[in-house]
Design a protein around this nucleic acid. Structure first.
Lengths: 262, 262
DNA sequence: GAGTGGTCTAGACCACTGT
DNA sequence: CAGTGGTCTAGACCACTCC
């Protein structure tokens, strides 16, 4: 492997991993680095692109390249589905006490903050299949941006879908100004007489689109986790579909599967 | 967004998404494409790098760029942990019938094939913490490469750890030539008198390292899912740790969480 | 305005593939 | 061997940030 940019990337990795360059420290300018390693600027940039994708450095346009600070890791556990179900039947005052911001996204961290936006849409083929409804069925789409207000960038994007006809019997659920709803989505469903029986989550990973990288404040080359959460009620109906987009380097998904005893 | 390479990437995306360029079809040479779009070759390559990361094209050195064939998607469901536990107590003849290749990796697909390699290692800080044993404790490390022999490239990498002292009482478990073990890891543990109570899986996503991309036959820029599976026995001990590396674009992880009824 | 990274050019040469 | 993508050069100019 005589590739110049790989060789340089390795050298820089060493400096960072061994702690010779400390978190937060600014790297020399790219022109200076290029000279130092006897190469051209574009090649040096190829090397830096590797470190960027690995999350070892942050690039700040017009400022410089910096060794990355240790990120706060956030966990999202499937244990919260049961926790949310339990909370859904508490009195409102109790529900309010247990914190509203965690919502149905399932992230646990101090200082979470989120913003909602409701809209009515028509089911495309994909969503129609998941809900087992005809294409074109009216759906309520709710978009959430979750911010970690201690950190910097928005933290994740969530889009939740409900069948409009199902939700319509409680007008409050169509009103985005009622967010954040104390008790989360399962409490909302309870007001419609719906009990969630199980939650199915489907997970894939891919690089973010340009827009997603923009909105999540992601560096080029990092991965995002796409999680589709499907809530199924006691009659076997799909009652909610929630698509989450989560930066892969800051979040750890935790799933616990209990097994029947012998 | 007046960026040339974004504009070109969008144009090519359209051609592929609308089906004007069909899967398997070769794109014009990069020099030709560059001329066609009135830009330089490096800029054209930036555009193609986007499509590559999105999985829309395959690059083949010395051959050309091709519109990507629709990939077979493989699912990995947590339902299989219970399934494997149930199977662990069947008679060997019955266990053999239900298929050996799926093993403890949890992938379900026809024509799976895998190769094992055993080795003894010492617990590093990370593994010592998970197993709650001192750093340096002897562990049995088992590496698996799973191939989808219908497709082309190896399909995923798995590394499984067991505490050596626990396993040693059954010498068969130290012998890699006994693989594939009918009934999977839970049956192996059963021979030691260990019953698995629950499985905890932790999921993150990141770009692959150079070596991982090499071994999994991945294109530049795609993401991998890192899944750590921890099996905990009825006494609360961590009895197995399994690290899986899975191409993010070919696999969908499925987790079902049942909820207690009201 | 000075210094930084972001984009782009117009080449060169190497490595790989298929004929 | 011809044609392809992979790597690399030595610049240019633009966009952004901070002083």
């Amino acid at each position: 492997m005589a590739k110049t940019y790989e060789r340089i990337a390795d050298a820089l990795r060493q400096e960072i991993r061994t702690g010779r360059m400390k978190p937060g420290q600014r790297l020399p300018a790219e022109t200076a680095l290029a000279k130092e390693h006897h190469t051209s600027v574009p090649t040096m940039r190829d090397a830096l692109a590797e470190l960027l994708a690995e999350g070892l450095i942050d690039k700040r346009h017009g400022v410089g390249n910096f060794v990355r600070e240790r990120r706060q890791r956030v966990e999202r556990s499937n244990a919260r589905h049961q926790w949310e179900k339990d909370r859904a039947r508490l009195r409102e005052t109790e529900r309010l006490q247990t914190g509203t911001t965690e919502h149905d996204t399932g992230l646990t961290a101090p200082g979470l903050e989120f913003r909602a936006h409701y809209r009515e849409v028509r089911a495309d083929e994909d969503l129609a299949a998941v809900f087992s409804v005809p294409v074109g069925t009216r759906l309520l789409r709710r978009s959430y941006r979750t911010f970690l207000r201690d950190g910097d960038a928005p933290f994740h994007l969530a889009t939740s879908y409900l069948v409009h006809a199902v939700v319509a019997s409680n007008p409050d659920l169509l009103d985005e100004t009622k967010e954040p709803w104390p008790g989360g989505t399962q409490n909302q469903l309870l007001t419609l007489g719906i009990e969630v029986d199980r939650v199915v989550e489907r997970v894939t990973a891919r690089p973010p689109t340009w827009e997603e990288a923009e909105e999540l404040g992601l560096q080029k080359g990092v991965s995002v986790i796409r999680l589709r959460k499907i809530s199924i009620d006691t009659r076997g109906r799909t009652v909610e579909v929630s698509d989450l987009l989560i930066p892969g380097d800051r979040t750890e998904l935790v799933f616990t599967t209990p097994l029947a005893r012998w």
